[in-house]
């Protein structure tokens, strides 16, 4: 649920990056963090293990500018990808406004992608959300790797809803901002509809 503060005239929205382990969710956030203006962003908080795997979440607050006199701020979160962190993953989905599903394009990660997508659907359901109605976009990450599966094939398996989709190479930023803009736009459009 977006949080609208009428007295300080701010809208806060929560966007969650979801996807299988090591698919590049944190990398997405790191790239955004490195490329944005220092005045518009807060600290990137990463709760990770010594081996750099996300343990609980990464968090990046980002302000985008004003709409009709309201400051819009997005809180970007990532979830831990590994299967056994399911309990903490559920918690992060609380109050979510929009989801980015980051898929790993490598052929050997296809199964992990599918499992993660199913897990997203189930966990959203438990929080009372319907994945089919939540603003969401899909990002096919790691397009530069030689063992990447074709986009058609990925789409067939991971995006039957024909959500907006983007190809990305997160470490050098390809597609990262396109993905963010797309989901932010969907969230705001939803806000406009829902009121």
């Amino acid at each position: 649920m977006s949080f609208i503060n009428y007295s300080s005239r701010e809208i806060n929205c929560k966007i969650v990056y979801y996807g299988p382990g090591l698919c590049g969710k944190t990398t997405n956030l790191q790239y955004i963090y490195n490329k944005t203006n220092p005045e518009t962003k807060g600290k990137l908080i990463s709760l990770s293990t010594e081996t750099d795997r996300t343990l609980f979440f990464d968090f990046l607050p980002l302000s985008l500018g004003e709409i009709r006199g309201f400051k819009t701020r997005f809180h970007l979160y990532t979830v831990p990808g590994q299967v056994f962190y399911d309990a903490s993953r559920k918690l992060i989905l609380k109050g979510v406004d929009g989801v980015v599903f980051v898929a790993d394009s490598q052929v050997e990660r296809m199964e992990a992608n599918m499992e993660s997508l199913e897990n997203l659907r189930v966990n959203l359901g438990e929080q009372g959300y319907d994945f089919d109605r939540l603003p969401a976009v899909v990002q096919y990450n790691k397009r530069d790797l030689p063992n990447a599966v074709s986009v058609d094939e990925l789409r067939g398996v991971l995006n039957p809803r024909r959500l907006p989709e983007y190809q990305a190479v997160a470490p050098n930023g390809v597609g990262v901002f396109d993905t963010l803009k797309a989901v932010a736009k969907l969230v705001l459009t939803e806000l406009k509809k829902g009121g």
Binding site: G65, I67, F70, A184, K185, K192
Partner: peptide, 19 residues
Amino acid sequence: IGSPFAEITDADIDNLFSE
């Protein structure tokens, strides 16, 4: 209490990303 966003246009949203 009406939402202030009912009147937001697509152009407003596009403006946010124009920079």
